[in-house]
Design a protein around this nucleic acid. Structure first.
Lengths: 199, 199
DNA sequence: GTCTATATTTGGATAGAC
DNA sequence: GTCTATCCAAATATAGAC
């Protein structure tokens, strides 16, 4: 496929244009789900926002679920990128704190994204294998950081994810836009760390 | 209102019949949301199940949101009842364990109910004041148990709810029907208890 | 209290012209 | 790639007969 684009530059530009429009549609979709909730997304409304007829969206997406699928991939790519940018401290407590903060912040930023990525709230939607693969990468990356700082058993890892996702979901549910639970990260990490590693 | 029913017994029976049908509809609604997710509830489908025309449901509920509202109240009443049945041990660790187990079990039993009660996942739905009052009662009851066992600050309470809701949401998301996170309750309670109260 | 009839809106999706 | 035209199904909700 890469050779073709070298031979036919017009293809390239056409492709780029296509991708740009697709991106524009997805950005609009993000705005919609953020404003009204993941389950309030409709193709008609989406088309209106990007100033198209609803039918034209099918040039870019096979179905509504395909739009969701791209959002799902988007979100996971963003989270993965943040993990990749993370500098993991040698100090265990610092490292754990950074990971927790990264995740809870990511979650708290966007309720809709959190729902889409971590809860199964859209009837009949499940990510395509390609999109799911990104989510698996995210999981692996998170897990490997924690293994590096000394978290050895699955049980400890599960306890960790429970604490971090608990802070995230409580933040979103009880203090959206605030920092009531974000402020607890330090405390929570101390609790976890002391329990698993001792003082 | 109570005097009226005393004077007109027929009213009583009519009322009882009405309530029974209403209950039947709500039970069917529970089954639907459990099977297909909270957002997949439709009045048409609901009517089909209870063998009615969709329009007849309006005799019992003002709107679809009113159905959701009754489910919301149902769920909270059930949780409240379980709290009321709970015998709180004098031993702190035992008491905390019982509360955590009560909640996580309640959550794990029914994904849809959890979503309805604790996540905001239905576009535009919010509980009526009357239904919300029950949720507040639940909160108060949980909070008072924890205060009784020595949990004094809001911060500690928030940390507690984060841990418990974290176990719940992870159980539902990553091991529905299983006990991967339920098995961690003991461990999690130990962690929390040691951190807040010391050994 | 339940029905028929119907209004109204909205939704996802396809065919085919340009 | 975008449009017009259109389909079809489903949704919530109301009016009025029985």
């Amino acid at each position: 496929m890469a050779d073709k684009t070298a031979v036919e530059p017009r293809r390239d530009r056409r492709h780029a244009r296509h991708q740009a429009t697709k991106r524009e549609i997805l950005d609009a979709a993000w705005k919609m789900v953020r404003d009204a909730g993941v389950n309030a997304l409709s193709l008609r409304a989406l088309a209106r926002v990007v100033d198209m007829e609803p039918q034209s969206l099918y040039t870019y997406f096979d179905s509504k679920h395909s739009v969701y699928d791209h959002l799902f991939a988007d979100g996971n790519r963003e989270l993965l990128a943040r993990f990749d940018r993370l500098e993991v401290s040698d100090d265990r407590r610092r490292a754990l704190d950074a990971v927790a903060r990264l995740f809870v912040t990511f979650a708290a930023e966007d309720q809709a994204r959190y729902e889409l990525l971590f809860l199964r709230t859209i009837p009949d939607f499940e990510p395509s294998p390609e999109s799911y693969a990104i989510a698996v990468e995210v999981f692996k990356r998170g897990r490997s950081i924690l293994t590096d700082v000394g978290l050895r058993t699955l049980e400890d890892f599960d306890l960790w994810t429970a604490v971090v996702s608990g802070l995230s979901s409580q933040q979103l549910a009880n203090d959206p836009g605030g920092d009531r639970y974000i402020r607890l990260i330090d405390n929570a990490v101390a609790m976890f760390s002391e329990h698993v590693f001792g003082r």
